[in-house]
Structure formats: C-alpha cells, structure tokens
Amino acid sequence: MAANQSHNQQAGHLNPSLEGVLLMLAGLFVLSVSDGMVKYLAQTFSPLTIAACRFSMQVLIVWAIASFKGSDLRGLIKEFSWPQVLRGVFLVLASLQIIVAFKVMPLTDVIAIFFIQPMVLTILSAVVLKEDVGPRRWIAVLMGFVGIMVIVRPGSGIFGAYALLPIGAATCFALYLMVTRKLSGQASLMGAQFVIGVTGSVIVIPLLILGSLFGITETPILSSAAGIEELWLPLTLLGLLAFVGMFGQGLIITAFERAPASLLAPLNYAEIISASLIGYVFFNEVPDAMVWLGVSILVASGIYLAHRERAAANAARRALDKS
C-alpha cells in the first residue's frame, strides 16, 4: 500500500529536467509576448517613454516583493556596487536599442539578428576574460556572422543603419552577461533586479524629460493618438510591460534551477518560433526564405557553441576532481 502511494506521488511530479524544459519554453514565449507588446507600444509611445516606465515599474515591483518578504529598502540599497551598476548600464543600452529596432523593423528580423549574442559573448570571453577559445568555437562564431549576413543581405532593404540596432543590442547584452559571470554569487536576485531598475530609471527618465523639453526626441505620447479613448489599451499594456518581462525572466531563472544550463541554452532559439507567430498574427509580418536560412545557420552555430561550453565545463570539472 505504501509502495503504491509512493509510486503515485512520484507519478504526479515531472522529472526536474523536463520541468526545466517546460519552464524555459514558457518563459521564452512570455518574453516574446513582451517583445510584441513593445513593438505595439512603439506605435504610440517614444522608446524613452517605454524604457522609463519599464525600469521605474521594475523598481516598484521589486520593492513591493521585498517588503512582502520582510526586507527593507536599506537591504536592497546595500547591494549597490559599481560592477552592479555597470551591468545595469549595459542592459539599459541593450533595451533602448531593441525598443527602437522593434519600432522600425519586423519582429522576427530583430529577434533573428539578436541571436548573434552567443557569438559576441564568445569573442568577449576570449578578449576580455582571457578564456581559452579553441578553433572549432571560432569557426562556429564565423558561421554565426555568415548567418547574420544571410539575414541582412547587404544591398537589400533589410541592410542599413537600422540593422545595426539589434546587433548593438546583442553586443550590449553580451557585455551584460559577461559582467553577470564575474558577479556570480555576489548579489541576490532581488538586489540585482533592484539595481538594474534604479540604474535604468536614473539614465532614462532625465533623458526623457530633457528630450521632451527641448524637442530633441519624440514627445511621450505621439500626436497620432487623438484622445484617451484611443489610449486605454496602450496605457494598460505600458503598465503591464514590467510585470510581463519580470514574469518571463522569473520562469527562465526557475528553469535553470530545475535543469542544467547545457540542456536549456539551445532552447533559447525557440523564441524565434513564438516571435514569428506573434509577428504574423498581430503585425502581418511574414519572414522570407533567406531570413529562415540565416536563422538556421545561427541556430546551428549557437547550439554548437553551447555544446563546446558544456564540453569545456566537463573537462574543467574532471581536472578539478583529479587534483
């Protein structure tokens, strides 16, 4: 009887690795929804307005969660450090560039080009962190750039200054990940989110105010919106954006607690499927065959890089065990 009960309890729970995979896929889908929200909001609000609301709302959400758990504001402030702020700056720069890119480019094209990030991170790891990068990983990086060239196609309508936005965003996000590696174990998740939110607010809100006062940037609400009856949906989505983004990140963080990174990392490319679906359904965007070819090359390169990262980690672990 007890054995049957134990078997039933085990049958009622998923394997942790499978839980991690499902959480990862759910998180990527939620982040694709967040990207779609940004693209929709960019039709009404300036990129600075979207970013200012996103980061300021993040501060309030983290503060509220910390207060609910019995922490106070002083505990969050104590986690401030220059490396933490630098990480926040890189994420702010990546966010601003990706928001502008969503405004002027198809959703799938932006996500596809952004997938250059693992290749950029590999280069930064070799140049800045002095990590050993073998010839096969360099070949994978080179193939990643070939994939980007297939997507943007120099001489086509996609190639141009706008295509540099997701490339710049991917570079800044790779720098964010590089700093995150260096800060591993030095800050709590809530503290890191709080520092990022404050850093983003401190950078973006003054830019928004100055840009609006001096006419350097777009006004917060564009003149195409005639009245409040036309703004209720954009304003609602603007308020929900931070919640949706943090929920997606929370799912992904939980996924990495359930399953190994080597299993989850290649799943990042599933985002191109959900992004394409959202782009088609809500924005009538249909990627052409060359975009899919470039994405295929990028995905293959990224998965191989993830495989080499796993092999290097296993080799380092074995060497440590022998010593």
Rank of each mutant, 00 (worst) to 15 (best):
S224K: 14
R317E: 14
W82H: 10
A313Y: 10
V38G: 06
E229K: 09
A66F: 03
T108Y: 00
M24K: 10
L222R: 15
I113E: 02
A161N: 05
F247C: 07
L277H: 11
V30Y: 06
G144A: 11
A187F: 09
F173Q: 12
A289H: 08
F45I: 05
V33T: 10
P166C: 02
S301Y: 06
I272A: 02
P106Y: 08
L129A: 14
E131L: 09
L320A: 15
M190V: 11
E271A: 14
L213N: 10
S81F: 03
F194I: 03
A265D: 08
N284M: 11
G239D: 00
V286W: 11
N314M: 15
G36A: 09
I209T: 04
A2D: 14
P83L: 07
G279K: 07
V85D: 10
I167A: 02
Q186T: 14
V133N: 00
N268P: 07
A42R: 03
G160F: 04
R54S: 08
F247Y: 13
I50M: 01
D288C: 05
R258W: 09
F68Y: 15
L14D: 04
L213H: 10
K103W: 03
K69A: 09
F29I: 08
V141E: 04
N4L: 15
L23T: 07
V299P: 00
L251W: 06
I228Q: 08
Q186A: 13
